[in-house]
């Protein structure tokens, strides 16, 4: 996959280069956006809108290529040299690695754009089969014996980390910060998971196509999309009493943008995500907009749910990663005690 993305990126960069001598006046720019799995539809729409906007504004033609894959895998590809102009990943921890491992961006990257550099947000919801046969209402119902839960592996999937932390946050609140009981709750939940796919799309396939599981823990946008694409009425979205505010961050990859001379247009690309047009596109693709005017317009689309942030419930990504997902963390221990 890594190599494939590299080849695609190389082709993406090479094609316009060969076409360059033919253009006369207006510049012909290519941007590479390296993104995570479920943003395919979002960036397909957004890239077209941005190209149009940039052509009208400056007369330059810009083509944006987007590559998709698991968030961690994509970050690793950039660290290993995939020269992305912008990175739009599933969680801040992966973007942090671009600063930490490869010094591609400054350490304080997350302060450069509004809302922790997350132009849109999402959350984790429960997708159940038609008629909700197991009567699933909240996280509590997922630990009942006989309920089969589908989620990807938090070690390989960014989305799954949000799932895990959302369940953890719920249990933490329910048991009043009793850590042993919280652990037991999450352990029981994981015992009901028969398949741990490596990515979010893989889990959706297992649940939808293979017919396995009673409930799928999913990104809200992925759940809406599954409903829309796979036929309304086959699935129902259940909104839990508490969930986590997922903030997928975006950043310019300074070192590569500088190399390509695309800093200005890369910055404009991300800024455009925050404009009314950009926010509209995000909302249409079921991401929760951060701009108030668009958020109120689409208010009825998104169910109201109490959301906790990663900072207030877990003290930030670096800490959450260390406590829960690194080797010997809570996720590993749940399986070892079995």
């Amino acid at each position: 996959m890594n190599n494939i993305t590299k080849i695609i990126a190389a082709l993406a960069l090479a094609l316009p280069l060969t076409a360059l001598p033919l253009t006369v006046s207006a510049a012909d720019i290519t941007l590479l956006n390296v993104s995570y799995d479920p943003t395919r539809e979002l960036y397909q729409d957004f890239n077209a809108a941005f190209s149009k906007h940039w052509l009208e504004k400056t007369g330059d033609k810009v083509t944006v290529k987007t590559s998709h894959g698991g968030s961690g895998k994509q970050a690793r590809a950039i660290i290993d040299g995939l020269d992305a102009d912008v990175a739009t990943l599933a969680l801040a921890y992966d973007v942090d690695q671009l600063a930490e491992k490869a010094k591609l961006i400054p350490k304080d990257w997350q302060k450069r754009l509004p809302h922790n550099s997350s132009p849109y947000t999402s959350t984790i919801v429960l997708l159940v089969r038609k008629g909700n046969p197991k009567n699933i209402k909240d996280w509590d119902d997922l630990i009942k014996p006989g309920v089969s839960v589908i989620t990807p592996n938090p070690k390989t999937s960014g989305g799954a980390r949000w799932n895990y932390l959302a369940a953890w946050a719920f249990a933490q609140k329910k048991y009043g910060n009793d850590e042993a009981k919280t652990k037991e709750f999450v352990g029981k939940l994981l015992k009901n998971v028969p398949v741990l796919d490596t990515g979010a799309r893989g889990s959706t396939t297992t649940f939808v196509e293979r017919g396995i599981g009673d409930v799928l823990l999913a990104w809200e946008n992925e759940a809406f999309l599954a409903q829309k694409e796979l036929g309304v009425g086959r699935f129902e979205i259940v909104v839990p009493s508490l969930s986590i505010l997922a903030e997928p961050p975006v950043t310019v990859v300074d070192k590569f943008a500088k190399k390509h001379g695309t800093e200005k247009v890369a910055k404009a690309y991300l800024d455009y995500l925050y404009t009314e047009e950009g926010q509209e596109i995000a909302a249409k693709n079921y991401y929760r907009p951060t701009l108030q005017s668009v958020a109120s317009k689409y208010e009825s689309q998104f169910p109201k749910v109490k959301l906790v942030t990663i900072d207030e419930a877990f003290g930030g990504w670096a800490k959450a990663q260390k406590v829960h997902f690194s080797d010997g963390g809570t996720f590993d221990r749940v399986y070892q005690n079995k």
Binding site: G72, R76, I79, K101, N153, T156, T198, S326
Partner: peptide, 10 residues
């Protein structure tokens, strides 16, 4: 898969 998992975690 264990190897891939460890890579994903850098």
């Amino acid at each position: 898969l264990i190897i891939i998992t460890k890579l994903e975690q850098y």
